[in-house]
Amino acid sequence: MVIAVQAMTETSSDSELRSRAWAAAAAVVDPEIPVLTVVDLGVLRDVRVENGAVEVVITPTYSGCPAMDMIALEVELALERAGFRAPKVTRVLSPAWTTDWISQEGKEKLARFGIAPPKAKAGRRALFGEERVKCPRCGSDETSRISEFGSTPCKALYRCTACAEPFDYFKCI
């Protein structure tokens, strides 16, 4: 394994290594929403390779999101499994993460998972306006908010008055 890695780093250019590192990091999923990868979420911001040393840049969704420590560790492990030694995971705060960075595919995965995806473009209107959230189970618009905060900081708790099911809504930020 170690020999193979050395061979790899000696023969590969930084740009090849970068795409390999990106692929490894990109496969990491959110521990709390395991249908979403860090790419779907927009949490994976950059992968840099210099002289064979890899640095992955991630950004937290919320300041206190406990999943971030787990994601950072998982990214590190994924890179090590892919043959990178001593990978560095850097966290940046700026620009601040927004739900606008969740990919279209990510939004579809969320809905299939039973979590209503963020609706509008993030912003003041989305924050304070009346949000019409579609029930991810039956598709009805007849829903109401139970609580601003759900099972994680990124979600609000809703109920559908048509099918009577409660559900999580990934709120705009």
Binding site: S63, G64, L93
Partner: peptide, 19 residues
């Protein structure tokens, strides 16, 4: 629901404090 809400707000604030 409030237990969850207050816990989540606490998490936000402690996260801000950490940074």
């Amino acid at each position: 629901e409030e237990d969850l809400a207050l816990g989540n707000i606490a998490l936000d604030l402690i996260g801000q404090a950490r940074s």
